[in-house]
Simulated scan of single mutants.
Amino acid sequence: MLSKPNRLRRSRDFSQVYRQGRKAVSAHLIVRVWAFSRRPEDHPGKAAGPCIGIVVSQKVHKRAVVRNRLKRRVRAAVRLLLPQLDPNLWIVINLRPEAVQCEYVEFLRELEQLFTKLEVIHGHS
Rank of each mutant, 00 (worst) to 15 (best):
M1D: 08
M1T: 04
L2G: 03
L2C: 08
S3L: 11
K4T: 09
R7E: 05
R7T: 08
R7A: 06
S11Y: 12
S11G: 12
D13W: 06
F14L: 11
V17P: 00
R19S: 12
R19Q: 15
R22S: 14
A24C: 05
S26A: 09
A27N: 14
A27Y: 06
H28E: 01
H28K: 00
L29P: 01
I30N: 04
R32A: 05
V33G: 00
A35E: 13
S37T: 12
P40G: 13
H43W: 14
G45S: 15
K46G: 13
K46P: 00
K46I: 14
A47T: 08
G49R: 07
G49K: 04
C51T: 11
C51G: 11
I52Y: 06
I52A: 06
I54P: 08
I54F: 10
I54C: 12
S57L: 14
Q58D: 09
K59W: 13
H61A: 15
V65Y: 07
V65K: 06
V66T: 15
R67P: 10
R67V: 11
R69P: 00
R73H: 13
V74L: 12
V74E: 10
V74G: 09
A76L: 13
A76Y: 01
V78C: 10
V78I: 13
V78T: 10
V78Y: 02
L80I: 12
L80C: 07
L81F: 13
L81K: 09
L82R: 07
L82C: 04
I91P: 01
I91R: 06
V92M: 02
V92D: 06
N94C: 04
L95F: 02
L95W: 00
L95C: 11
R96Y: 02
R96T: 05
A99C: 02
V100E: 06
V100M: 01
Q101S: 14
C102G: 01
E103L: 02
Y104S: 09
L108E: 10
R109P: 01
E110D: 05
E110Y: 05
L111T: 07
E112N: 13
L114A: 06
L114T: 04
L114P: 05
T116L: 10
I121Y: 00
H122V: 07
G123M: 09
G123R: 08
H124E: 08
